[in-house]
């Protein structure tokens, strides 16, 4: 069982940080609604309040790590231009997708949308983290602010979901592979 270094980084970016962010995002929505929304019966306890602050700050960090690893580690491999006369496009995912009418949409719509929309997630979730960090339990006294923050977190989940979906589908059709090989396990 082995994996290439490029495949490993794609795994870290998508199934590591990206998936963790999406899971955390749904948890954040539930907790924000349950503890801070005007409908919440009691103000969150001080311990829960601090937990939520740290949870959202960690989420923001994960979101930033996800977009930066995507843009500055994996994307350059994805968009690499093959030298003239290259017979196999396997190491050039963007060109591989663009070479066929049945896959060009994964680049033209999928990657073109994903590479930009993903950045809305860290912006929105950092804002949510900053507001919860500043207001804490006080947020219950600002129902309008809480509703707006929740709306931004929904968009942060949507943006992350779009990026995750297209990332998975693009990597299925034209995997980012190459570099040295990491041996994970020897076969029987």
């Amino acid at each position: 069982m082995e994996i290439t270094t490029r495949g490993f980084w794609t795994l870290i970016h998508g199934m590591g940080f990206g998936a963790l962010y999406l899971l955390a995002c749904s948890g954040a929505l539930v907790e924000l609604y349950r503890r801070y929304a005007p409908a919440a019966e009691d103000a969150p306890a001080a311990r829960d309040d601090w937990f939520m602050r740290i949870y959202l700050a960690a989420m923001a960090a994960v979101a930033w790590i996800t977009v930066f690893t995507g843009a500055y580690i994996i994307y350059p491999w994805y968009r690499a231009v093959p030298p003239a006369g290259t017979a196999s496009l396997a190491a050039f995912p963007q060109r591989l997708l663009m070479a066929s009418s049945s896959t060009i949409g994964w680049h033209a719509l999928g990657m073109e949308w994903k590479e930009h929309v993903a950045w809305l997630a860290p912006i929105c979730i950092t804002m949510a983290a900053a507001v919860v960090w500043q207001y804490g339990r006080e947020l219950q006294r600002h129902p309008q602010l809480c509703r707006i923050v929740l709306s931004f977190v929904w968009i942060a989940l949507f943006a992350g979901g779009v990026a995750g979906f297209f990332g998975a589908m693009i990597n299925k059709n034209a995997p980012v592979e190459g570099g040295s090989t990491i041996h994970l396990m020897h076969g029987e």
Partner: peptide
């Protein structure tokens, strides 16, 4: 207990809106 004004939250929210719009516009 302390009741904070909503200004800091409003600033964070509107700035996130500006940042998001700037991203789409510049792209």
């Amino acid at each position: 207990t302390t009741s904070l004004s909503n200004g800091a939250g409003a600033a964070a929210v509107l700035a996130a809106g500006f940042g998001s719009f700037a991203l789409g516009l510049i792209a």
